[in-house]
Design a protein around this nucleic acid. Structure first.
Lengths: 346, 346
DNA sequence: TTGTATGCGTTATCAT
DNA sequence: ATGATAACGCATACAA
């Protein structure tokens, strides 16, 4: 299929390429309505489709957004297995497409930069989730394109960001357990990295403890990787050891599901023997046995808002730095995995 | 950050732009090793990054692959909620990136073409999953780029394809139930569309029935949408009605999970009262209660193979039509959701 | 082996 | 209002 160029259109319509370019880009005010009609007709008949590569070369706009999500360390595959990221991506893509943008979805080798990609592709902007080493963000800044960080506590006014109040979330979860009479509460979590979301949730956990006059016991924190498998392992430990633990706060639903299974592996029941509360409210949380009590955040909405912000930043050149970080709401979803114990009042 | 061009590099190195282009594109044979060294040095020092837009304009190669997956009808969001697609995408992206390609992931409005996108972006190829109207495929062919279809029974030698033997899968699942003494077997499925995968699974279901001398009873097929919700509804019907149904084959795990819940909603148990077998082996199948017996396919591998085939097709210009459709293996994973009933042998 | 010049499709500048 | 024409950055055919 031979490519139809803007020149073909201009010839067919009997006008200049500039005129065609004008009507194609909505600057119809600069051209007579008669010319507009002729051009539209020619475009239609020739089935003209503009070449974004050429366009990008001419004006440095690609209508392309880079979306980065974390990947598994071993197999270098996207972390889409975690439904949380899937939903995020769904939201982003839908919103972007609605405005005529496309999304390049990729992971990034750890330690490697994203500068190459952004420059090669003339990206109009990027949405970054996950947490990377500092040099990664420095690179990003050099490119001078709008960037939205999701779930990042990088404190740099260059970046716009959307997230949740993770500290509050951790507090809410732990408080809920405490309100139900639990005093020996485990924390099951992925690696607690500086400025990461789990660190904040961890902080919230400690705050709730302290507020209730409970001691923080380091032996009660099970920290490893954000996987079902590790959650299960932790669950086994919690259920088997001669510990007084009666409840666990898992910093992600994926892990919470594992914890519940681990508890069962040891012949004990959730919530009869061990109560469990998760974080995220991924779709399986609703359908697990028992249905998981959790802190809900709306991942799809998060993705949509991130895209929204990015698009608006792309529109308003250089004025985009003025954004306040966007903090999305949280909600406690009380299902069946937490048991009220003791005789404590509400 | 001012863009460093090939001209900057050539000047710094004291050679021509052609020389730079040669060493950058691996045609080092055309140039003295001394020049190569000078160029490499200059590239390094200037931190030169080629512009893919320009490259694309000059030689019609974009290093960009279009990946299309189905989307929800109502909200126009990607079907990534279904873990099956997530895994597919993971595999595709990982393999593509490994070869220096990027992926534009998108859904496509129903009825709308993909021709625009492919031409605008100068895509080097595309991977399509899902089933679309004929005109969609016709458009695709016009662009004359390599295309791999996943899970499609479009019979057109232009397209390469990777999939599984869905008929066999349906047969295996149904046969397994029959082998366990079941004779009244329901089918719970999404819309049975011509040339779609579920149609084939449906055919396999009927073949197993016929082979066992069982009658095909249209009242036993529950056909609607591929969702947990509908599965649940069907499960309720199956468990409540005064039917003789003792087992159900759900054409996707997502639905199978729903069926199990629906059965429970009616106060009955899986597999005690109703046996359930699914399809796909998504990750939650392993951790459901009870763990789901299912027909396993490896979605990640499917994605990797699709990407692999596409890349190879891109390499061998126009010779790519010679491919045989790739059929990936299937495996019955026997867990705990199917009960052996009656006194049948084997 | 190396350099020059042209084309790729579009936008934007500048005359007309 | 409209139409030439020069970038944009790279690859490559061709000349040296």
């Amino acid at each position: 299929m031979k490519r139809v160029t803007i020149r073909d259109v201009s010839e067919k319509a009997g006008v200049s390429t500039a005129a065609v370019s004008y009507v194609l880009n909505g600057r119809e005010g600069k051209v007579s309505s008669e010319t507009v009609a002729k051009v539209r007709k020619a475009v239609e008949e020739l089935n003209y489709i503009p070449d974004f590569s050429a366009r990008s070369l001419a004006n440095n706009k690609s209508k392309l957004i880079g979306v980065v999500i974390p990947q598994t360390e071993e197999r270098k595959q996207l972390l889409l297995q975690n439904p949380f990221y899937s939903e995020l991506v769904c939201g982003i893509e839908a919103r972007l497409r609605q405005s005529g943008y496309h999304m390049i979805l990729s992971g990034v080798e750890k330690g490697e930069g994203y500068l190459d990609t952004s420059m090669q592709r003339n990206l109009d902007g990027a949405i970054i989730t996950g947490i990377y080493q500092e040099s990664f963000y420095e690179d990003l800044k050099k490119v001078r394109m709008p960037i939205v960080l999701i779930d990042s506590y990088i404190n740099d006014s260059y970046f716009d960001s959307v997230g949740i109040d993770d500290e509050l979330g951790g507090y809410m979860a732990t408080k809920h357990l405490i309100d139900n009479g639990h005093t020996n509460i485990a924390l099951v979590t992925g690696l607690i990295r500086k400025d990461g979301v789990v660190e904040k949730r961890f902080l919230g956990y400690k705050r709730a403890l302290k507020e209730a006059g409970l001691f923080y016991n380091p032996d009660y924190v099970f920290e490893h990787s954000v996987t079902y498998e590790y959650g299960r392992e932790a669950g086994k430990l919690i259920a088997s050891k001669q510990m007084e633990i009666t409840a666990a706060f898992a910093t992600s639903d994926l892990m919470a599901m594992g914890v519940m299974q681990g508890v069962r592996d040891e012949g004990r029941e959730v919530p009869t023997h061990i109560s469990v509360i998760g974080f995220d409210d991924i779709s399986v949380a609703r359908i697990s046995t028992p249905p998981l009590t959790t802190i809900r955040q709306d991942a799809v909405a998060k993705g949509i808002m991130a895209a929204e912000r990015l698009l608006s930043a792309i529109g308003h050149t250089e004025a985009y730095r003025s954004f306040e970080p966007l903090v999305m709401p949280l909600e406690l979803i009380d299902r069946r995995s937490v048991l009220r114990i003791g005789g404590s009042a509400e």
